[in-house]
C-alpha cells in the first residue's frame, strides 16, 4: 500500500500532502497537517466534531478519504477568523457562553457557518435540525442556538 500524493486547498492556501489510500481526511488534517482544531469524537460520522467544508459542502472529515481532497477546497475552523478578527459566530459563542468544554465547538462553528451561508435567517428549529449531527454534551444546546441566532442577526445587519 503506497501513499498517494494529493494537491488541495485548505482555508484558501495551497497544500500538498501524501497519505495512505484508506486514510480518512480527518487523520490527514490532524496528524499530517497539524490542523488539530478538527476534532475526532467518534470516527463514524455520528458526532460532527470533525466537521469541515469540502467545496462548500458540510461533511464529516472522518467520512471522507484524504485522497478525495485532490483538487478540492477545504475549510476548517482554523480558517474562520481573519487574522485578529474573529468570525461573528466565534465571537458570539464566547459572548453567549455557548461552549463549556469546547471540544464540539470547532465542528459546530463550521456547521453553523455553512447554515448561515445557505440560510441567513433561520428559525430556531432550523438551527436545531441543521446542527442535529453535532453532539454537544455540556450545554444542552440552549446557548448554542442563541449564539447562532445572535451571530446571524449581526451578519444580516453587517
Amino acid at each position: 500500500m503506497s501513499n498517494i500524493h494529493v494537491t488541495t486547498s485548505i482555508n484558501g492556501d495551497p497544500v500538498e500532502f501524501v497519505c495512505a489510500p484508506d486514510e480518512p481526511l480527518l487523520d490527514v488534517l490532524r496528524n499530517r497537517l497539524g490542523l488539530t482544531g478538527v476534532k475526532e469524537g467518534c470516527g463514524t460520522g455520528d458526532c460532527g466534531a470533525c466537521s469541515v467544508l469540502v467545496d462548500g459542502r458540510l461533511v464529516c472529515s472522518c467520512l471522507v478519504l484524504g485522497v478525495e481532497a485532490e483538487g478540492a477546497e477545504i475549510s476548517t475552523v482554523e480558517g474562520m477568523a481573519e487574522a485578529e478578527t474573529l468570525h461573528p459566530l466565534q465571537q458570539a459563542f464566547i459572548d453567549h457562553a455557548a461552549l463549556q468544554c469546547g471540544v464540539c465547538t470547532p465542528g459546530i462553528l463550521v456547521a453553523a457557518k455553512a447554515l448561515l451561508a445557505k440560510n441567513p435567517d433561520p428559525t430556531d428549529e432550523e438551527v436545531r435540525f441543521w446542527l442535529a449531527g453535532n453532539l454537544c454534551r455540556c450545554t444542552g444546546y440552549d446557548k448554542i442556538v442563541r449564539a447562532v441566532q445572535d451571530a446571524a442577526a449581526q451578519m444580516r445587519s453587517a
Partner: peptide, 9 residues
Amino acid sequence: DGVDKVTGR
C-alpha cells in the same frame, strides 16, 4: 480559554 477554543487552538 474562549478564543483558543473557538479558533481550534
